[in-house]
Simulated assay, not measured.
Amino acid sequence: MNNDLIKNWLEKQSALVVDGAMATELEKRGVDTNNELWSAMALVHDPDAVVAVHRSYFDAGANIAITDSYQANIPAFKKAGLTQEQSGKMIFDSVKLAQRARADYVKTLPEDARQTTPLLIAGSVGPYGAYLANGSEYTGDYSLTDREYKDFHRARMNLLAGAGIDLFAFETQPNFAEAKALADLSRNEFAGIPAWLSFSVTAEAKLCDGTPLTEAVTYFNQFPNIIAIGVNCTAMTNIEVLIKVIAKVTDKPIVVYPNNGDTYDPVTKTWESNPNARSFSELAPKWQAAGASLIGGCCRTTPVDIQEIAASVIE
């Protein structure tokens, strides 16, 4: 999948719909995600459940499936008892499972829709903080050298690329230095594969490490293979303002996929439901009007939420 093809789709359509939460839907299917690998443990113990979740989002109207590899990395799998070879296979398979769900879904479409409906697989690359499994993807409170960041991410990116992703999703990135390393690695070693870059931010329009969002977005304008930039895993009510902040400093398509309105405690790793949360059907059109081109959901979102987005954005 080349950059131009994805850009053409974005130009032809006002928006593409990104899928929703993986762990939330796995938990509904009885999969235990309370471990350091989080939803990625399902790659080991229940791959069919991963396929089912991906398929549920395609059925709901998603154009883009994000692989179950956010917290999947070789050191974490080895720590859980897998061999080097088995660990690599789990990351490779995260793509194959999403592709399987897509292939099954395509069979349900009319022939003309099969040719015109964009259905993409985005290889999830979570931050180093996700590997630490201590909530630091929400603080950015960690520091490696540029080389160390690249060495950490390279193995997973090689496996995702080898399995045939359409693009990378560098997501929930809280640390400016790490995001720089990822973009540089992507440009120099994976130039043929486009990527979106999505930050973990505060309500004050800063990356979680304190870097102003405008400074970060402006920096990544220089990377042609970063074809979209935005935010994820933040409150729905923050999104419209953040889109407007981003739109002031970039012409790249903007990607947003917030949480569903519930509140997460990274210490206890539990969620508190918000009965007064706004609906995606109400907010997604506002995000699109503000300038978002790729819209989906992150933690705690469901196929119902994605169906609301698909029904409310203008294609």
Rank of each mutant, 00 (worst) to 15 (best):
M236F: 06
K269M: 11
I229M: 04
I165L: 06
T33F: 07
G123M: 08
Y105K: 02
M41Q: 15
A163S: 09
I121T: 03
T218K: 04
A310T: 06
V31P: 13
F280Y: 10
A216I: 00
Y142H: 08
T218F: 00
A60G: 08
D141V: 08
A292V: 04
A60T: 06
T268Y: 15
A101R: 02
N225G: 06
L97H: 04
N276R: 11
L159M: 13
A181N: 05
G88Q: 10
Y138M: 09
P285C: 11
A133D: 12
G210T: 07
S281Y: 14
G291I: 01
A103P: 15
N3S: 15
V217W: 05
L10P: 00
A161E: 14
R147I: 14
N276C: 13
M90S: 04
A284I: 00
P110M: 02
A195C: 11
Y57V: 01
C298K: 03
E204R: 15
I91W: 07
S56T: 04
L37A: 09
L82D: 09
L242N: 04
Y128A: 08
A52K: 14
G135D: 01
I66P: 10
L242R: 05
P110V: 02
S69Q: 08
I193N: 05
P266N: 06
W271Q: 03
G123K: 01
A235R: 13
D19Q: 02
T172F: 08
L167Q: 03
K150W: 09
A21M: 09
V50I: 14
I239R: 09
G230F: 02
C299F: 10
G129R: 02
G230Q: 04
Y138N: 05
S143G: 12
L43N: 03
N63D: 04
N35H: 08
D68T: 09
L182T: 04
I226S: 02
T33C: 10
K89E: 15
R100C: 12
F190D: 06
F152G: 07
N188S: 15
E85W: 08
S200E: 03
A103S: 13
I91H: 06
P224V: 00
Q84E: 15
P174L: 01
D19R: 02
Y219N: 12
Q99K: 13
G126L: 07
C233S: 02
E85A: 13
M41Y: 15
A133R: 00
T234A: 13
Q115Y: 12
K180F: 13
E137G: 04
P118V: 04
L159Y: 09
P47N: 00
T237Y: 14
T202A: 09
I243A: 05
I246R: 01
F58Y: 12
A228C: 05
R300T: 09
G129L: 04
A23W: 07
S198L: 06
Y138V: 03
F223D: 03
A133S: 11
D305K: 08
A122C: 09
D146V: 14
E308M: 11
G61L: 01
K79H: 10
V95W: 06
K78D: 09
I227T: 01
L213Q: 01
L294W: 02
